[in-house]
């Protein structure tokens, strides 16, 4: 009966490595938040506790606009990319090979392989023409460009989830005369959920990070937080950016908490 007490799920050392990974992930973030409360204008020398930089950030409308714009772009691009990637993943997995399958796979992952500066320069040239023709110069260009490079980041986790996922459940539902849409909503989608969430989160953070493409595609008054910081890098970066980052983090923690409670109610 020794087997009963033995947890088949645990692997020796995995918990320790996972703990280490989380320490690695959070250590820089903790220092980052700590320096948001630095009284001096240095990112490295501690000058006492102060809320000074939060005040600065609250007064600096340029940086707030940029942060807000980044969030809007990331949310829109990640949402569109996740929907498109989910559809594409369903279309390219669990199927007998058909003509064009490998082509689709390569095609969808292509944005990953094109160096950012190349996409940036080429999009600049193409979008500039479109801007002149249509007279429209809103955020749409940035969202479209971000969506494109987010697609592989959403696609790969979803596809990894789908691959080898048992089709029996869906077939059973279809046999019970559930219309295809119902089968998808009630069976496929819930099974896919972890993949979709992983894909969406990846797409979201990738979009938040982008500098080079945004720098070239943005029109007047469309600085995102990264392009704003790129401009600052040459001169001086103060803990003001830490304060903004800390605010972002606080927001994300609130979201996680809400998410956690919603999830708890469901189960």
């Amino acid at each position: 009966m020794a087997r009963a007490r033995f947890d088949v799920r645990s692997q020796p050392g995995f918990g320790t490595i996972a703990l280490f990974t989380f320490v690695v992930l959070y250590l820089p973030i903790i220092t980052l938040v700590a320096y948001a409360f630095n009284a001096s204008e240095s990112l490295t020398a501690w000058g006492g506790f102060s809320l000074h930089w939060f005040g600065e950030a609250a007064r600096n409308t340029a940086v707030q606009d940029a942060a807000w714009r980044s969030l809007v772009i990331a949310l829109s691009a990640a949402s569109v990319a996740t929907v498109a990637a989910t559809m594409a993943a369903i279309a390219t997995t669990r199927t007998a090979p058909y003509r064009g399958l490998g082509f689709k796979y390569a095609f969808i992952n292509l944005p990953l392989m094109v160096p950012e500066i190349v996409t940036a320069v080429a999009l600049l040239i193409v979008f500039a023409r479109v801007k002149v023709w249509t007279g429209y110069s809103g955020l749409g260009y940035l969202i479209l460009a971000h969506t494109a490079f987010c697609i592989p980041f959403a696609y790969l986790p979803i596809r990894a989830r789908l691959e080898g996922m048992d089709e029996a459940l869906e077939r059973a539902a279809a046999d019970l005369y559930a219309p295809p849409w119902q089968v998808f909503r009630r069976v496929t989608l819930p099974l896919l959920r972890p993949g979709i969430i992983a894909g969406f989160m990846l797409a979201f953070v990738i979009s938040l990070d982008d500098v080079v493409i945004s720098e070239f595609v943005k029109s007047g008054g469309q600085d995102t937080l990264p392009t704003y910081m790129l401009g600052q890098m040459r001169r001086e970066i103060t803990p003001e950016v830490n304060a903004i980052a800390a605010a972002f983090l606080a927001l994300s923690v609130v979201l996680v908490t809400i998410f956690f409670f919603i999830n708890r109610k469901k189960t």
Binding site: F22, L25, Y26, L27, P28, I29, T31, L32, Y35, L43, T44, S70, P194, I197, A198, M201, L202, F204, V205, L208, D209, V211, L225, P226, M229, L230, M233, I237, V241, N242, A245, F248, L249, L251, S252, V253, L255, V256, F259, F260, N263
Partner: peptide, 26 residues
Amino acid sequence: REVWVFLVTIPFWTNLLIRTFAMQQV
């Protein structure tokens, strides 16, 4: 599980440049 997934991505809500500067601190 999904909360843990969130926890993995939270550090990445701050953009790459700030994260790289934070890494420098370490």
